[in-house]
Amino acid sequence: MAERVVGGCKCGQIRYEGIRHEAATFRCHCRDCQQLTGSGHSEMLPLEIDTFSISETCKIFEMQGGSGQPTYSGFCPDCGSQLIRRSTRMADRIYVHASSLDNPAQYTPEKSIYADAAQPWDSNGIIKPL
């Protein structure tokens, strides 16, 4: 059975839902995620793009990803909650920030990416491959 995921921003203005994608969950230490979250990393859960819906009020910020292709970050224009990340390289999925899930227990990080960019004060958060 497909796992339904729902979530939203802190102020409640933006809601989203979708079905869990089979790709791995991850902890991203890239500089973009550090700056967007104000933390050492982001926690990302993939959803199938064709099942995903989000409130129209979600503000989208476009930037250039490490691949040189566009990536998109979505957040609430009122409370500032980070909600989504999307990349043109992985058009079949969209990632939601684990902190925005109604049920954060649906998230367990499976790997770290861009661990070489981790800040020294956040290096204990790197998930080592088995």
Rank of each mutant, 00 (worst) to 15 (best):
N103F: 05
T25K: 01
P77G: 12
L130F: 04
V5A: 02
V96S: 07
K10C: 07
L130K: 13
N103G: 03
P77W: 04
V96A: 09
H21D: 14
Q13Y: 01
P46E: 13
R86E: 15
A91E: 14
H41L: 15
G80C: 06
P120H: 01
D50T: 13
S87D: 11
S73M: 09
C28S: 05
I113S: 13
T108Y: 04
A118R: 00
C9R: 00
T51W: 03
T57N: 10
P109F: 08
D32M: 13
D32F: 01
A105T: 15
T25Q: 10
A24G: 05
P129T: 07
R20H: 07
D122E: 10
E17I: 01
K10I: 05
Y114V: 01
G80E: 04
T57V: 07
Y95T: 09
F75K: 00
H21L: 07
L47A: 09
S87I: 01
S100H: 00
G80W: 02
R85T: 08
S100E: 14
G18L: 10
G74L: 02
C11G: 03
C76F: 02
P46M: 12
K128C: 03
G12W: 06
E56T: 05
E22S: 12
R93T: 12
A117C: 09
Q34E: 04
R31T: 15
S55V: 07
D50C: 04
I19Y: 01
T88R: 12
Q106Y: 10
I49F: 09
G8I: 04
Y107W: 15
D50K: 04
V5T: 05
R93K: 13
G125K: 11
P77N: 12
V5H: 00
I94H: 04
E22M: 03
C30M: 07
G18W: 02
S100P: 01
S73F: 08
A2E: 06
A105H: 07
G40P: 13
L36E: 11
R20I: 05
S42E: 07
